[in-house]
Design a protein around this nucleic acid. Sequence first.
DNA 1: CGCACATATGTAGATATATGCATATGTGGT
DNA 2: ACCACATATGCATATATCTACATATGTGCG
Lengths: 123, 123
Amino acid sequence: MHAQSSASVLPVSSLSRLFKALADETRLRIVALLAHGELCVCHVQSGLAVSQPTASRALALLRAAGVVEDRRAGTWVYYRLAAQAEPARRRHLQALVRGFAGDAALGREVAALVAQKGPRACK
Amino acid sequence: MHAQSSASVLPVSSLSRLFKALADETRLRIVALLAHGELCVCHVQSGLAVSQPTASRALALLRAAGVVEDRRAGTWVYYRLAAQAEPARRRHLQALVRGFAGDAALGREVAALVAQKGPRACK
DNA sequence: CGCACATATGTAGATATATGCATATGTGGT
DNA sequence: ACCACATATGCATATATCTACATATGTGCG
């Protein structure tokens, strides 16, 4: 008989779901933005120059995949990167964030987004 | 005017392609196996209990994505993890390999596969 | 050359994924 | 209650992805 599937106890399916969530360019760029701080949908929308439904759906999918969490603040819904319980997932997301967070230009872009939209910018 | 896309110079599209390659469970399990050493298609096929075309295609896609390299040895074609030039990609693949390589049961499974199939097992 | 074996590829069909457009929901303020 | 704004969702459509089955290619051997 042969060894058969398994790949042991490793969280293959959990990692697979994570990678699937990160595989889309729009969603990966959202993670890049969120590496610099929480944002609401309108920030993502204008930061990535995508339609509002696209931004909303991408964030919803990331939330379903456990990559982000959301928080409601009046009319706005803020999204932030979620803490990862699974060690392997945590390693990968941290690696991503480290890379993205080191990008100063991205940081300025995020700061500009927050400054020109959302609650802080409006009143 | 608004900030617009970009996400700066970060290799978003390159990372996106990497994650797309790793998003499939079959392919991710192949990477897990290869973390323990090079294998040929028949090893993967019986190790994951998938059909020969499925194993071959999965490996071909991983090769196209730059995740693995291949080497022909007579009738057999050996696949191994490829070195990554891009730092971000290298970090992620190394993180994966570290996790998978630490799994002793997986290591034994791979050893068994190599022992019972392929050139070394046949003659 | 012809056979046996390992691997690759063509094709088709089922299923998932992404996006645009319209519209619904939710919230705060007048 | 109504309106304005931010966000979410329904629906249709285009496109990508995966798998199965059959078949082709390549390599070694007698």
